[in-house]
Amino acid sequence: CHSECLGNCSQPDDPTKCVACRNFYLDGRCVETCPPPYYHFQDWRCVNFSFCQDLHHKCKNSRRQGCHQYVIHNNKCIPECPSGYTMNSSNLLCTPCLGPCPKVCHLLEGEKTIDSVTSAQELRGCTVINGSLIINIRGGNNLAAELEANLGLIEEISGYLKIRRSYALVSLSFFRKLRLIRGETLEIGNYSFYALDNQNLRQLWDWSKHNLTITQGKLFFHYNPKLCLSEIHKMEEVSGTKGRQERNDIALKTNGDQASCENELLKFSYIRTSFDKILLRWEPYWPPDFRDLLGFMLFYKEAPYQNVTEFDGQDACGSNSWTVVDIDPPLRSNDPKSQNHPGWLMRGLKPWTQYAIFVKTLVTFSDERRTYGAKSDIIYVQTDATNPSVPLDPISVSNSSSQIILKWKPPSDPNGNITHYLVFWERQAEDSELFELDYCLKGLKLPSRTWSPPFESEDSQKHNQSEYEDSAGECCSCPKTDSQILKELEESSFRKTFEDYLHNVVFVPRKT
């Protein structure tokens, strides 16, 4: 048989008469490798580009789960590009990614509803959504962080984005990388972005840091009482949809009607710091009717980097990364020049730590249904340095008659930039024990000054392991946590139920 035959053949030295091919099969003959313009397919066939392209389009058009959109890589027609490569849609070739590779997620039936953290986790790592997304989240724990972890990498949506009755959302900033909504599939009414009845939605994105392009379709905003109209108009300008909307697409009466839409800028007039305090004062603000001013709200939190936005980490279910302080308005003076500047002394802060701070007014709604208010920009203030805590785990070892090696770990709280350490030492008198000992005694162990690591005695271990207080009263049991108490109650309830079950099964009433 021919060298490319495997198993047997019907005619000697003829690659077209093989029972099976050793390498690849091409047009009725066995070959060692697939010549151009053919590609290896499933490690035994040679196919042309049209064959591989037909497989790709067949799966793409069917949208069946589990099928493969075949691509070409290293002269092979394979189910998908290997790690580190992405497909070129024009020629199906796998090309190296520039940075992290995109991950295209194809949605069944063309859309997916995100109504819980669990459903959001199914899209973790996706960068391109081939379909439409509907966000409908009523509640949950730590929602802002969970949504950002699972949806934060999405850069492109081919269909539309719909935010509907998501009472738990305060902001859409968890879509931190969303840059493009194509609108290839539109919501009824030709809408590519749809926001309806979101009672706590206050911000779409921080438009000073976020760009969003909507290729096709219109915007729809109705019944978002805490979303200011200025935020919607800003989205029109940034996304390129200005002029597409009709009169009733953006409701003037049901958007922002319960919001404090600040239209003035508060400026800080005085800032002073110490290692654990920050004193702030800002310019006074009074609405047209000074009785509408209820006070100020001061927001602050630790910020290692200057990239904080107002609604980071917030949701309507209680999660809030900001510390909020309510401040009463100052006494009002008739003389504008003698107006008191409101302020606040922030206490209990960490030394040498940068804080993000902003302040906003708290006002009631005027009778004319106009909203007044003022808010400052987010500023960054760093507390002063102070003395560091003591170095940890000092170790001293003498390696000769004239040297001592000293080692330690950095302090747990540096409280500033540590530039150097101060080492103090003092000579001590020799131990009298060394002169009084009889060095001729056998088995004498000389006193040693070398360091030995501390260890816990058996008594201390027994005390720590004991669940009861000892007789001397030195140790006591740790208080039980809520989960331990709940577990004990469940076990007790189970024992009672099981005992009742045994009584009912074992003891049967005697027939009379």
Results as ranks from 00 to 15, higher is better:
residue 190 N to L: 08
residue 303 A to M: 05
residue 333 S to C: 09
residue 342 P to R: 05
residue 167 Y to L: 09
residue 254 T to P: 06
residue 185 T to V: 14
residue 114 I to K: 00
residue 274 S to R: 09
residue 213 T to R: 11
residue 151 L to F: 07
residue 257 D to C: 11
residue 222 H to K: 01
residue 339 Q to H: 12
residue 324 V to E: 15
residue 317 C to V: 06
residue 386 T to G: 02
residue 374 A to V: 05
residue 145 A to N: 12
residue 290 F to M: 02
residue 372 Y to V: 13
residue 257 D to R: 05
residue 280 L to K: 00
residue 155 E to L: 06
residue 103 K to H: 03
residue 170 V to A: 12
residue 328 D to K: 02
residue 388 P to N: 08
residue 339 Q to G: 14
residue 115 D to T: 09
residue 370 R to K: 10
residue 231 E to G: 13
residue 154 I to S: 01
residue 179 R to C: 14
residue 330 P to L: 08
residue 106 H to A: 03
residue 147 L to V: 04
residue 359 V to P: 00
residue 221 F to W: 02
residue 237 E to T: 11
residue 392 L to I: 06
residue 349 L to E: 00
residue 215 T to R: 13
residue 156 E to A: 05
residue 281 R to H: 09
residue 104 V to G: 04
residue 257 D to E: 05
residue 182 R to H: 10
residue 346 M to C: 05
residue 249 D to Y: 13
residue 398 S to V: 04
residue 333 S to D: 13
residue 121 Q to C: 10
residue 213 T to Y: 07
residue 166 S to V: 11
residue 211 N to R: 10
residue 235 M to A: 09
residue 378 I to N: 01
residue 233 H to I: 13
residue 260 S to P: 09
residue 266 L to Q: 02
residue 166 S to L: 08
residue 273 T to P: 03
residue 122 E to T: 06
residue 267 K to M: 07
residue 245 Q to L: 06
residue 220 F to Q: 02
residue 311 F to Q: 08
residue 269 S to A: 09
residue 216 Q to A: 11
residue 407 K to A: 00
residue 227 L to T: 08
residue 205 W to V: 03
residue 298 L to F: 13
residue 158 S to V: 08
residue 407 K to W: 12
residue 237 E to C: 15
residue 299 F to R: 14
residue 103 K to Y: 05
residue 125 G to R: 12
residue 146 E to Y: 15
residue 337 K to S: 12
residue 401 S to H: 08
residue 265 L to R: 14
residue 207 W to F: 13
residue 286 W to L: 11
residue 300 Y to H: 11
residue 384 D to Q: 02
residue 324 V to H: 08
residue 142 N to I: 00
residue 380 Y to R: 05
residue 252 L to T: 10
residue 120 A to W: 03
residue 325 V to P: 00
residue 296 F to N: 04
residue 181 I to Q: 00
residue 351 P to H: 05
residue 238 V to G: 12
residue 179 R to W: 09
residue 301 K to L: 08
residue 231 E to S: 13
residue 327 I to N: 01
residue 114 I to A: 02
residue 183 G to H: 02
residue 370 R to D: 07
residue 367 D to N: 07
residue 126 C to W: 00
residue 125 G to D: 10
residue 250 I to E: 11
residue 103 K to V: 08
residue 314 Q to H: 05
residue 320 N to I: 04
residue 379 I to K: 07
residue 138 R to A: 08
residue 321 S to N: 15
residue 323 T to F: 06
residue 294 L to S: 10
residue 356 A to E: 01
residue 246 E to A: 05
residue 262 E to V: 05
residue 189 G to R: 04
residue 246 E to Y: 11
residue 383 T to G: 00
residue 172 L to S: 02
residue 398 S to M: 02
residue 194 Y to V: 11
residue 340 N to A: 07
residue 310 E to Y: 05
residue 260 S to Q: 07
residue 203 Q to G: 03
residue 390 V to S: 03
residue 214 I to E: 00
residue 233 H to R: 05
residue 277 K to C: 15
residue 300 Y to T: 03
residue 158 S to R: 09
residue 251 A to S: 08
residue 214 I to R: 05
residue 306 Q to P: 15
residue 180 L to Y: 09
residue 189 G to E: 13
residue 367 D to R: 04
residue 167 Y to H: 04
residue 209 K to T: 13
residue 266 L to G: 01
residue 187 E to Q: 07
residue 290 F to S: 12
residue 109 E to H: 14
residue 317 C to H: 15
residue 221 F to R: 00
residue 321 S to L: 12
residue 263 N to D: 04
residue 174 F to T: 04
residue 132 S to T: 14
residue 361 T to W: 03
residue 345 L to V: 11
residue 306 Q to M: 00
residue 317 C to S: 05
residue 379 I to G: 02
residue 346 M to F: 05
residue 170 V to M: 04
residue 331 L to R: 11
residue 251 A to E: 07
residue 304 P to F: 08
residue 142 N to W: 04
residue 138 R to D: 03
residue 151 L to R: 00
residue 283 E to H: 07
residue 297 M to Q: 11
residue 127 T to Q: 09
residue 223 Y to C: 07
residue 193 F to H: 01
residue 379 I to E: 08
residue 228 C to Q: 05
residue 140 G to E: 05
residue 267 K to H: 06
residue 111 E to V: 12
residue 259 A to S: 09
residue 407 K to F: 02
residue 122 E to Y: 07
residue 166 S to W: 01
residue 353 T to A: 08
residue 268 F to K: 00
residue 110 G to V: 04
residue 181 I to F: 01
residue 206 D to R: 03
residue 378 I to T: 11
residue 294 L to M: 13
residue 127 T to D: 04
residue 126 C to G: 00
residue 362 L to E: 05
residue 176 R to K: 13
residue 188 I to S: 07
residue 246 E to W: 02
residue 393 D to T: 11
residue 114 I to Q: 00
residue 295 G to N: 11
residue 174 F to K: 00
